[in-house]
Write a protein that binds this DNA or RNA. Structure first.
Length: 478
DNA sequence: TTTTGAGTTGTTCGA
DNA sequence: GTCGAACAACTCAAA
């Protein structure tokens, strides 16, 4: 029997990996392959934090495959060139992969498939990365949902938990064709090495992902409904980067969480809230698949008239965490240091950029893309557009987050701000989230001079809110 | 086709 | 401090 190439992409795991399971079951010799494709048209280059994560994840995957007697092959280049090459070199008669759903990935995969089939190679693809594939959750009018709640209701009705695929046992190894060395890909930063904070915070790879899920199910998910909004508490699942790279799949999370839901418990339980967040991930992917233009353009075209401001200095202050609003700065610094930001704070920071500063959501989206370890195209653009008001199911524009009120509500004792903005840590709680309001003697007792140790606010929120509402009005009635 | 109810995550104001 | 209403209209999804 000819070998089968298993093309890994966003499914860097051995468990519950249908393409790998099917390849192993076929009895053919297996050639596991990863292609670093930065050439296919429309496929975005990875951000810095994503590249770092990918390095860890591939190293882990390669190690796990060695345990099965397989050797992960690494190649670089356009997938539609590389796949046929590897097929020729190995003499493979079949290629298997799990499907991706971003529009540019779909186009690339179609091209690869066409080329392989033309060369007489079988192609098998599988669903593995979403709960439901785009196009499978539709309204009564057979149209994709544009509002989350009915989408979620329908998904719950339609979803059938698939039987898990165990990790394969001793598949036959395929021929050892040439492979790049992972270290030569330069995915990790060297000069300067800015990844110290990432290394302290994260461990990539399937084993770490499985541990994270198990730990969270044992301790955390019960309080998830309440604590996930609190950046000062460890309430988040922190599964997002693992899910992005498929070190763990959404069905595995569902299988773990669904049995913990108590049927007659009042309100939404922690496990239920987790499934709902998983469904948001699906919703974003379905939206992007249906509206490919939303990667760069407003989903609501009315926002094409919105009077965004071009303000590189404000953008830089936001990126560097020196807006003078402690909760915003804490978030931006957490992001820079760890490659991750608490979801509540993402909303606050995004609202601040788009509404207080009136900077186009695209700039924020690009910054997150580069700095987040969980950077995911569909989630990133859908959530930025949601906050900006230009997206599906967006909040009414007049819902403008007040960074002081949000901070008081979700970081009540200031532990989060004190951790990430240590220069103001000695301020009493009352002034911590609004140091510009503190009396001079309070500031000096805390060892702070505004403008020297910590910036004054770059905009006055009340005035900025008013300006944003006017801009919105201008868009609606030009 | 028309109608109806509802829409992740908020803020401000005035009683 | 706490509560409810207003904020503005529009679009979506299902009956």
């Amino acid at each position: 029997m000819t070998p089968v190439v298993v093309w890994f992409r966003r499914d860097l795991r051995l468990h519950d990996n249908p393409a790998l399971a099917a390849a192993a079951k076929s009895g053919r010799p297996v050639v596991p392959l990863f292609v670093l494709d930065e050439e296919s048209r429309g496929v975005r280059s990875l951000g810095g934090a994503s590249r770092w994560w990918l390095h860890q994840s591939l190293r882990a995957l390669a190690g796990d495959l060695v345990g099965l007697g397989l050797s992960l092959r690494l190649r670089r280049g356009s997938a539609s060139e590389v796949l046929p090459e590897v097929v020729r070199e190995t003499g493979a008669g079949r290629v298997a992969w799990n499907r991706c759903y971003e529009p540019a990935s779909v186009a690339r995969d179609t091209k690869v498939e066409t080329k392989l089939r033309a060369a007489g190679v079988e192609v098998e693809s599988y669903a593995a990365s979403l709960l439901m594939e785009p196009g499978k959750v539709l309204t009564g009018q057979k149209a994709p949902y544009k509002v989350f709640t009915p989408f979620w209701k329908r998904l719950r009705e339609l979803y059938r938990m698939p039987a898990p695929h165990p990790a394969p046992r001793e598949p036959a190894p395929g021929p050892a064709v040439a492979s790049d060395r992972l270290d030569d890909w330069g995915l990790q930063p060297t000069a300067p090495d800015w990844a110290g904070g990432l290394r302290e915070t994260w461990e990539g790879g399937e084993a770490a992902a499985r541990r994270r899920l198990a730990d969270f199910m044992a301790d955390g998910v019960e309080r998830y409904g309440i604590d996930r909004d609190r950046p000062d508490l460890p309430g988040s699942s922190r599964l997002s980067p693992h899910l992005h790279w498929g070190e763990i799949g959404p069905h595995q999370v569902w299988r773990a969480a669904a049995p913990l839901i108590e049927a007659d418990a009042p309100g939404e339980s922690g496990p239920e809230a987790l499934l709902r967040e998983l469904a948001w991930r699906d919703f974003s992917h379905h939206l992007l698949a249906d509206s490919p233009h939303m990667e760069t353009d407003n989903w609501r075209t009315a926002f094409d008239r919105f009077p965004w401001r071009d303000d590189p200095k404000a953008l830089a202050a936001w990126q560097e965490g020196r807006t003078g609003y402690p909760i915003v700065d804490a978030g931006m610094r957490e992001l820079w240091h760890t490659g991750w930001m608490h979801n509540r704070v993402r909303m606050i920071a995004a609202s601040f950029l788009t509404k207080d500063l009136l900077v186009h959501w695209r700039h924020g989206e690009r910054w997150f893309w580069d700095t987040l370890v969980d950077a995911d195209l569909a989630n990133n653009v859908a959530n930025w557009q949601w906050v900006a008001g230009s997206g599906a199911d967006a909040q009414p524009f007049f819902r403008i987050f007040n960074p002081v009120r949000q901070a008081a509500k979700f970081d009540p004792a200031g532990a989060y701000v004190r951790r990430w903005v240590p220069e103001i840590a000695h301020l009493p709680d009352r002034w911590l989230h609004q140091p510009w309001e503190a009396p001079l003697n309070v500031l000096s007792e805390a060892g702070i001079e505004l403008g020297r140790d910590y910036p004054p606010p770059i905009v006055d929120h009340a005035a900025a809110r008013h300006r944003a509402l006017q801009a919105y009005e201008k868009m609606r009635r030009p």
